[in-house]
Design a protein around this nucleic acid. Structure first.
Lengths: 215, 215, 215, 215
DNA sequence: CATGAATGAGCATTCATTCAT
DNA sequence: TATGAATGAATGCTCATTCAT
């Protein structure tokens, strides 16, 4: 027979209530963030306002300040979220293989998928709130790891004679720039519909791994 | 005796006056645009306002509406200006040689120099007001020509066996993305000081012409 | 055998519990008032808010309304407290001697000490919430007694030929005004540092008891 | 025959227009200040808001910022006005006689009349915005002159054996405090109706010149 | 006894825009 | 050609207060 849990009924009730409340709170928080990112995508960074977020979720403007300290905290939370989700996937891609070319390919693919799949987060992270990178590192340890992973992948690739040898940082930067440019064009440029963006991305991946010039 | 110009004195006076007026008008217009781009650079897209432009040039806010229909027209004019200046240089780079590799290199260099040298215009053109591309083409024929030049350069390069053969558009897009990414990182990312940006750019140029992988 | 107390155990338990509860309740109340007066001192009347009081004592804002009907009641309670503490001291000074001049001197000293020692209460009582005096007298009998004491002291002083004879009320008012003015300047005027305030106060006391003009 | 003014008709028209405009502008400015001081008297310093000022004068809130930089400038303008008007009268009283006792009496009367006649200005100057005194002296030379006049009058009075000899500053401070206290009570204390205030003021004047104790 | 969630009103301020002059 | 005056809407934010739990 299953042993009775040591908590009293009252405790469990309270816990249930607490849990339900916490969950509800979490839900509103999520709703805020979701509305924020939707609005941000719709009207751009400049056209995003606390008031509109509130209206979108059907609450009064003041309520946002119950969940977030101020507008920036909403935005930076999105950025944090972005870095956290992105960081995980990027790390998994990094660890998924030891083949240098394949690893670079996978990391690039993850990068592009993330950027194109979460354009609001991506824009905030890498275009609108790059001051995020100036904040104390302690708060968000993810943000630096990411670039390190790329550098190490590049280092490996050079070691395995997969990449043209050269300075580590500038090579990583260039790779990053290529991926970044693809995402930017894909999510911001009119004319870059899904198919054109996809074609560009595929071509970029090919070129990254095979080089631009004929072997 | 000095030959009489065919126009009457009155005509000339009127013309002079007209010219002077036009010139003055042009000067104010230029002042507006210059102030606008300075403010945009200083305080970002969001921090740019008609009022501040007016104050900066020492006029009242209303005057802007004599030269421009509204705020957007000011911004789009900056974009037009950007495309026009950029287009010229890009064209000159295109025409400066028939060597496909060298031509690509020169075009890339012009692109990067323009972006990093006119970050306000660049951001407006390629990041903040990409809805510019949705406007009727007739108004500004420059904006498309540019990409055509790149496509033709790529086509040539493939023909001369300088670039890995493949789809023209997606290859051009990828090149564009690489350059665009470099400019974006260089002008927006904290940590990308002059030297790091320069190193990245040089590396990118090398890789674009020599490929990523060892020959 | 120990004599049974007349109350039952249950009663005592209840009483204990009640007492403890009352005591706790009293403690929270006190904490609220203390925090309120601290905040008022720190940020001024305008900068004082229920929210900040709550935060300062580590409770939720709502709890204030369990102890006080509304914001005004918090403030008026502070005023009451002020009048109560002040009234006691003032009365003691009044009763401490029968010498009219000495009595006036002691009462004045107590007044000044209270005002300068409890500037938050003083400001509330005599500057910010003078509407307090419009409330029904029954609630707080202290507030009027105080002025009566001064009047009686003045009456005595005139009887003992210590003060220039004249109307009782206007003379008392004038004395009050002098003391009030000293406190006001001392606690509000930039430039009135401790030493200047002290010098003024001492001089005022001298002049009040010896007169302004040479004998 | 009166000589034609050298200005052309157009110039005069323009000037008229300019004058009329300036006058109108001045009128709105005055209306703002007047509304501000009325509201301030009605609802206290804390209850005074730009919005309400705008509503009171029948304009939109934004217009205030056309005439004043911000809320503080409105308030400080009132303070400046107060000091300017008060300073003049105080100076005139100072200069109106060489009899030391009479001079002190007149200065005191002017002080009291100003305070009770312009309670909004007075409160701002001496109770709510005493930070005014911390501003650079250059901006408002009046504010210091005032106290100097009092000191000099006191000095004279001591020299003429009209005031009990003693420290100049603390004696002036005490006199100031007395007058200040009278004004404070008169304009803020419920119960101080006109007659009581007047009686107090008269009594204070008597005591200031004749001393508190019987000769 | 205390909280957490929420509101609605208010605040100072800025802005793009208009229009009579 | 240019201004000066004005508006109305928007913004981020704070607050006193309420109430179900």
């Amino acid at each position: 027979m299953v042993k009775q849990p040591s908590s009293t009924r009252a405790e469990r009730l309270r816990d249930n209530s607490r849990n339900r409340r916490d969950q509800q709170k979490q839900e509103v928080r999520e709703a805020i963030l979701q509305a924020a990112s939707a609005l941000f995508l719709e009207h751009g960074y400049a056209g995003f306002s606390i008031r509109q977020v509130a209206e979108k979720i059907g609450y009064s403007p003041g309520i946002i300040y119950f969940y977030f300290a101020d507008k920036d905290e909403v935005l930076f939370t999105l950025v944090d979220e972005g870095f956290s989700r992105f960081g995980e996937r990027f790390l998994r891609a990094f660890e998924s293989t030891t083949d240098a070319r394949e690893r670079l390919l996978r990391m690039a693919r993850v990068y592009l998928e993330f950027g194109m799949g979460h354009p609001a987060h991506y824009q905030l992270m890498f275009m609108q709130r790059t001051d995020y990178f100036l904040r104390p590192v302690l708060e968000n340890p993810n943000k630096l790891r990411t670039f390190d992973l790329l550098t190490r992948a590049v280092e490996d690739a050079m070691g395995q004679n997969v990449l043209l040898p050269g300075d580590l940082v500038s090579t990583s930067d260039t790779l990053w720039a290529t991926l970044h440019g693809c995402v930017c064009l894909a999510i911001l440029m009119p004319g870059f519909d899904e198919s054109r963006a996809q074609a560009m991305v595929e071509r970029a991946l090919t070129l990254v791994t095979r080089g631009l010039h004929p072997g």
